[in-house]
């Protein structure tokens, strides 16, 4: 199968998924909630103005927590809905590979999250107006946030393939993502340090999204972080394929 054909199939699936989102009010509600929550966290909890610096730190620092609920909410229907409606039988008997379907659906939801993220740009203009922020840090911050959303979403894709019940799928992915935050969150690592050897603490922390996310927030794009996020997206998507295969046999 030629490469362009593969992408065409993926894009067909992606397009369908995206039109599906915007056919119902859910997409708009999601975006509004996303923006409101972002505003709330940035200004009320993050102390955007009190910091007295022209940066988006108070905006980005909450994303791992914000995404913890919003991304599983966006991704919980990816495959469970497909199973519930029986359209999975239709999709997987089309002349496309399961990978094309999995990636296509994932990309659609990711693009949707990207759109929500892009709509926070007034914040960028605000900071630029107030001072002269480090533009590189803002860009790499957005990039990291986008990758983080992708990682959570891949997990949501996996859990949604496990069950036709969206609620269960949501809870499962929240739990997994929560674990990925906790294992590198400072209060937790501090607890670990007391009794675990140094290398173990570091190994556990390196599994955490926090470690990699925070380093990108500082404006550093390290290849290790990129590899981490690539595998955070790739592995659950691979598992999605395995689960879907298992379901059918």
């Amino acid at each position: 199968m030629s490469c362009s054909k593969t992408w065409r199939h993926i894009w067909t699936v992606t397009k369908r998924e995206l039109t599906g989102y915007f056919a119902s009010p859910v997409a708009y509600v999601f975006i509004v909630i996303f923006l409101l929550m972002n505003g709330f966290f940035t200004f009320m909890l993050g102390g955007f103005f009190e910091r007295g610096e022209a940066s988006l730190t108070s905006f980005f620092m909450w994303h791992p927590w914000l995404y913890l609920f919003l991304v599983p909410a966006a991704g919980m229907r990816l495959w469970s809905e497909e199973r519930r409606l029986g359209t999975m039988e239709l999709l997987l008997t089309m002349p496309i590979t399961p990978w094309q379907a999995i990636v296509g659906k994932f990309v659609a939801c990711w693009l949707f999250l990207l759109l929500a993220l892009v709509l926070t740009c007034p914040l960028v203009f605000t900071v630029m107006y107030l001072g002269s922020p480090d533009k590189g840090a803002i860009l790499s911050g957005y990039f990291g946030s986008f990758l983080l959303a992708g990682g959570y979403l891949a997990i949501a894709s996996m859990t949604s393939a496990m069950t036709r019940n969206q609620v269960i799928s949501f809870i499962l992915s929240v739990v997994i993502c929560f674990f990925l935050i906790l294992c590198g969150w400072e209060p937790v690592t501090r607890l670990l340090v007391n009794w675990a050897p140094e290398w173990l603490v570091r190994a556990v922390a390196s599994f955490s999204v926090m470690t990699h996310y925070l380093s990108m927030q500082r404006g550093v794009i390290d290849s290790r972080d990129l590899i981490y996020f690539a595998s955070l997206i790739g592995f659950p998507l691979f598992c999605t394929g395995v689960i879907l295969r298992g379901l059918r046999s």
């Binding site: 599906g20 056919a23 409606l85 029986g86 359209t87 008997t93």
Partner: peptide, 10 residues
């Protein structure tokens, strides 16, 4: 397929 599944959001 049996039961004629189709995407309800289209």
């Amino acid at each position: 397929p049996e039961n004629a599944p189709a995407y309800t959001d289209m």
